[in-house]
């Protein structure tokens, strides 16, 4: 009974992989659909062969039990069994050759189509992976049209997006299963990945190449939105950070600018222009903090600022000792960066 329960539980877990925010079989883009097709073809071909093997195995077992008194097969040329055996063996080898040929051809052509699908009207986005977060830059027509954000990727539905992949420190790999396949990000090398989203929604990308202590907490929040909403979002991201308004926010702003924060982080419209940490200009408009380590909320942000090393041990943000009131002020300021 409990065995059956376990199997049921395992099945539920497995089936949960078929749809949702991070599912390779629930394609929301052209590339993922193509890879999904290849997967389906492989499933059918391999499933068919597997079934055949099982049928023959079952037949052999049945024969061994029920046909003991039948005349045993004799070997050698001219025996009665030679002709059918030869036919069966030939057919079986033929089947394997055809199956492998179909799979190889399909893999080759799908790989080729994914590699060649480059278009000129693609939205160009530069993605840089670092331990353990993603820097996302939208190239614009002019330098002042460039949007820099972190750990979130927003794409307009229907338009191809060409991701230019860089790495800062070690090899990472970007995988948004709903939108496309994996592509490595390698230091000193530029890779590219084309994604053509077809369905609006929120998806989860993940680093797919072990890259150190916090590899598991290196998620990319990918959103496919309608083109108007995307344009609005992009315009909003271009604006500098709002000035602090309440006394608490003003105090937080002072702490940020005079403390170590500004040495690593950038907030557009303020003197803070560090380049090594994530850009925080519109931090409060993101859905997660620390590359998906926590959902975004005032409390989670304060926990993170109080002790980043207990939320995500080993990450490169140092513990900065602050009194409780300073901590609240700093959180209030960052929370105002919508």
């Amino acid at each position: 009974m409990s065995g059956r329960k376990h199997i049921c539980a395992a099945l539920v877990v497995l089936l949960a992989g078929c749809s949702g925010q991070q599912a390779a079989l629930d394609a929301a883009g052209d590339q993922a659909a193509t890879i999904g097709d290849l997967w389906t073809l492989m499933l059918w071909v391999c499933g068919f062969m597997y079934l055949l093997v099982l049928i023959f195995l079952a037949h052999a077992i049945w024969r061994a039990r029920h046909a003991l008194d039948a005349e045993p097969l004799t070997h050698g040329s001219g025996s009665r069994a030679e002709h059918p055996l030869r036919m069966a063996l030939g057919g079986w080898v033929g089947l394997i050759v055809v199956g492998l040929f179909v799979l190889s051809l399909a893999t080759f052509f799908i790989d080729r189509s994914l590699a060649q699908a480059r278009t000129d009207d693609a939205l160009k986005i530069k993605v840089t992976a670092a331990q353990w977060w993603w820097k996302v830059e939208y190239e614009g027509m002019a330098p002042d049209q460039r949007v820099v954000t972190a750990n979130e990727l927003r794409l307009p539905v229907g338009q191809p997006a060409l991701l230019e992949l860089h790495a800062e420190d070690v090899i990472h790999s970007l995988w948004i299963p709903n939108l496309g396949g994996k592509e490595d990000l390698i230091p000193g090398r530029i890779n590219s990945l084309l994604l053509t989203p077809r369905r609006e929604g929120e998806y989860r990308g993940q680093c797919a190449e072990f890259c150190g202590l916090q590899h598991a907490k290196m998620a990319l929040d990918a959103t496919v939105m309608n083109p108007d909403a995307f344009t609005r979002w992009r315009q909003q991201q271009l604006t500098p950070a709002p000035a602090p308004s309440t006394p608490e926010q003003i105090r937080g702003h002072e702490i940020f600018m005079s403390g170590p924060c500004a040495a690593c982080h950038q907030i557009a419209g303020t003197p803070a222009s560090g380049q090594t940490g994530p850009n925080l200009t519109h931090l409060a408009s993101r859905r997660t903090i620390a590359a998906g380590a926590r959902p975004y909320s005032f409390e989670d942000l304060r926990d993170w600022l109080r002790d980043p090393q207990s939320v995500k041990p080993g990450n490169h943000m140092p513990v900065v000792q602050l009194s409780d009131s300073d901590l609240n002020a700093l959180t209030a300021y960052l929370d105002s960066l919508k």
Binding site: S258, G259, P260, A263, P318, V319, V320
Partner: peptide, 8 residues
């Protein structure tokens, strides 16, 4: 001072 945390 105050720009880089002491441990660093």
């Amino acid at each position: 001072a105050g720009r880089i945390p002491e441990q660093q």
